[in-house]
């Protein structure tokens, strides 16, 4: 497995039982970012939903898009709200917009120094964090300054 940004013990992501985001989670395990794209108007859409909000097409498919983005917003978390993070110390959550995917946004952590300066608009690149030996196995998409 790759280095984990946060201490172990948080809930592990699994695909929604209705299958809505299964390709997304499967894609992360393969080191690929797959997001929903409308088969009719060809625009990307996220978070996962059953219908295109622009053209109401139900033909949403998952397509690969580059894990390259810009910091849309950020927060440095100090207070642990889960027992697994009791000894974590500060950590950074970023909301990343993806220019190549119609500027949809995705949540991740900004890896590296938790005290690093945070600037909206900073270019960031995706880093896949794999947990193949967990039960169940899963992968996360993290970010680092590009």
């Amino acid at each position: 497995m790759t280095d984990s940004y946060l201490l172990p013990g948080l809930p592990k992501p699994v695909a929604s039982p209705d299958g809505l985001d299964t390709p997304f989670w499967d894609g992360l395990r393969e080191g690929r970012l797959l997001l929903q794209r409308c088969g009719s108007c060809r625009r990307f859409q996220w978070g996962p939903e059953w219908v295109c909000h622009r053209c109401r097409s139900l033909e949403l498919a998952y397509e690969e898009t580059p894990a390259e983005g810009l910091v849309y917003s950020h927060q440095r978390v100090w207070h642990p709200v889960h027992p697994a993070l009791k000894d974590q110390g500060p950590y950074i959550i970023v909301l990343v917009e993806l220019p190549a995917a119609d500027r949809v946004r995705i949540i991740g952590n900004l890896v590296g120094d938790p005290q690093q300066e945070l600037v909206i608009g900073t270019p960031v690149s995706g880093v896949f964090e794999h947990h193949p030996d967990d039960d169940p196995p899963y992968s996360l998409l993290q970010w680092t300054a590009a």
Partner: peptide, 16 residues
Amino acid sequence: QRNTISGHAAHTVPYG
């Protein structure tokens, strides 16, 4: 506090 999480929360909770 649970082992797994799904749905929209799965896209935020594992990142703290």
